[in-house]
Design a protein around this nucleic acid. Sequence first.
DNA 1: TTTTAATTTTACACTTAGTGCAATAACATT
DNA 2: AATGTTATTGCACTAAGTGTAAAATTAAAA
Lengths: 198, 198
Amino acid sequence: MKNTSDEPSGLRERKRRETLGRIAEAGLQLFVKKGYEETTLENIAAAAGVSRRTLFYYFKSKEDILLAWQGSGFAQALHPTMLQESPDQFPLDAARECLLKLASRLETKESIAVDGLLRSSEALRARKEAAYVELEHSLLNAMLELWPDPTKRNAHRVTAMVAIGTLRLALESWREEGGQPSLAHHISRHFDLLKHQV
Amino acid sequence: MKNTSDEPSGLRERKRRETLGRIAEAGLQLFVKKGYEETTLENIAAAAGVSRRTLFYYFKSKEDILLAWQGSGFAQALHPTMLQESPDQFPLDAARECLLKLASRLETKESIAVDGLLRSSEALRARKEAAYVELEHSLLNAMLELWPDPTKRNAHRVTAMVAIGTLRLALESWREEGGQPSLAHHISRHFDLLKHQV
DNA sequence: TTTTAATTTTACACTTAGTGCAATAACATT
DNA sequence: AATGTTATTGCACTAAGTGTAAAATTAAAA
């Protein structure tokens, strides 16, 4: 009979998670060491102790093996974290606070390594930009729960776009300046710029 | 001796342009008819009366054949059009005017067809988002020429981000509502929303 | 425990995008 | 006409990704 609970915890599930982890780790390690293009799926499969075909059982593409590391859970945490904000503020201010709380997740070794790799080809750079649009959607959905006014949908879209766009610029600037000072600082400064420009 | 002028106009150049055009048109036509993934480079080469290998002499990838149609020259026109704006306005207002002037370029049959195709796969959707970031850079460069104040670089970045982001949302909304009313109208409305939200 | 069902892993053959290389054809210049 | 330059092609090759079906592993039922 099928197990309908959320998290089955048998041997099968454990091995599954282990294999998934081995593949993701072997992938990231090789990408960092040899470069993304220079690493073949054959390489990853060998390092993970699995057949090439099995890679596609766990990931739908080579890119996905890299993207699995993106943002250290930033994307997953965005929605719930935003929901914790009080609705007694302007949406943009709430978004700002939320992003500040999550900033540390983007300051990890993995995040930085992955970000470097995401610059190494057109296709990967494009994926990175697309990821921001995903964040925008997560943020928008949380906003729609916090301020459930159907007539403000477009306004919220604009707010989410501005907030995530500001995060993107802050990250860029943080990197350009070699991680100095903290990312949170850059985010704050960029949100301040916003008020003066718009 | 080498021809150093900008636009050589011999037989060679004419044929070159013709071949380029044939490939791009054959590609778009087949993509629309059969779908992007379902169209092979073999198909396009045959339809353009050229060898598969020659495709790579003109385009560096299959995606590029499609992306050549993106925006009907919007990207190329952005910089020069922005430069025509008067510096006696707020940068964001100038950007708004500029985008309104260019809006019609996105309302063409080709733009709409390409946009549809760009939704058909993850990789293509990602390319589309990346294209907006390119626009952002073009706009930023023009702004830096119009208001050459090196201390305002980050401010201008924010402005360019907001302007192009607004364009993106306006385009989305315009499409959702079936092209009604004009794109320019949607752009205006979204820029108005901005003032209220930020 | 044995049997049966579901899931995971693998091998193999195949398609297609993209690259390197070198030969040939077409155009341009002297 | 001879020479150089650019465009076109064929061929062989690498690597990503898919379809299929068999084998191995784990879970559940008897």
